[in-house]
């Protein structure tokens, strides 16, 4: 199973990006193989509108079943839920910290967007 994390960097020790739609990068972690790939999100980072929608589409296309991020807005939430992606909000400092929390079952699944669009 693949988990997508929002991150400001390109490695497991990189800070978790609190923003979803305008996250700098997505780190997609494969739980089976313990490997990961990094997807750049610069196009959506600079989009005037619809960043959440397009970022959600990108995450779904990566085959992720789970998204771990800081916050998620209403439009992104709709796209991700429609595609069956589970969303977890966390204030963990780094990707690896968030991954550990997920593995320990300490993250709670979000049942709604936790911020408005364009919150940051």
């Amino acid at each position: 199973m693949k988990i997508a994390f929002t991150t400001e960097g390109t490695g497991l020790d990189s800070p978790l990006d609190m923003r979803f739609g305008r996250a700098k990068n997505f780190l997609v972690y494969d739980l089976e193989g313990d490997t990961f790939t990094v997807l750049e999100n610069s196009q959506n980072l600079n989009a005037p509108q619809g960043a959440g929608i397009q970022s959600a589409q990108a995450v779904v296309k990566q085959g992720a079943a789970v998204l771990v991020t800081g916050h998620c807005g209403p439009k992104a939430f709709r796209v991700l839920s429609a595609a069956g992606v589970k969303i977890y909000n966390t204030d963990a400092a780094t990707v690896s910290e968030a991954l550990t929390l997920y593995r320990q079952g300490k993250l709670k699944e979000a049942c709604d967007a936790d911020v408005e669009g364009h919150w940051a």
């Binding site: 619809g50 929608i53 959600a56 589409q57 779904v60 296309k61 796209v79």
Partner: peptide, 13 residues
């Protein structure tokens, strides 16, 4: 960026 599509019927905002 109004349309999201991932191999399904597109979602339109």
């Amino acid at each position: 960026n109004v349309i999201a599509c991932y191999g399904s019927v597109p979602m339109i905002f």
